[in-house]
Amino acid sequence: MKIAIGNDHGAVDYKNTIMEMLRNEGHEVIDCGTDSYESCDYVDFGKAVAEKVANHEVEKGIVICGTGIGISIAANKVKGIRCGLCTNTTMARLTREHNDANVLSMGQRIIGIEVAKDIVHTFLSTPFSNGERHKRRIEKLAEMEK
Rank of each mutant, 00 (worst) to 15 (best):
G10L: 01
L22Y: 10
G70E: 11
L85C: 01
L104M: 06
I110Y: 06
I138G: 02
N55H: 13
T90M: 12
A142T: 13
T95Q: 05
M21V: 12
T95C: 14
T34N: 09
R136K: 13
V103C: 01
G131R: 14
E143R: 13
M91L: 12
K47A: 02
D8L: 05
C65F: 04
C65G: 08
C40A: 10
E59W: 03
R82P: 00
A50E: 02
H134D: 08
V49L: 03
D118T: 10
G131T: 10
E145Y: 08
I110M: 13
S129W: 13
A48K: 14
L94G: 00
R82G: 00
I119A: 02
G26C: 06
K146D: 12
V12F: 10
T87L: 05
T122E: 15
G84M: 01
Y37W: 11
Q108P: 02
N102Q: 03
L94M: 13
N24M: 13
C40T: 15
V58L: 01
M144Y: 13
E25I: 03
T90G: 06
M106V: 03
P127S: 14
V120I: 10
K146M: 09
K135W: 05
I113Y: 08
C83S: 13
K79S: 08
H27A: 06
K47N: 12
V63S: 04
K140A: 14
R133K: 14
A11I: 09
G6Q: 10
E97A: 12
G26W: 04
L124E: 09
Q108R: 09
K60Q: 10
E139Y: 06
G131V: 04
I71P: 06
G26I: 06
N99V: 00
I119T: 11
I71H: 07
V49R: 09
N7S: 15
H121M: 11
G107D: 02
H56K: 15
N55P: 00
V103H: 05
C32N: 12
N130C: 11
V12P: 07
V103Q: 03
V49E: 06
G68Q: 05
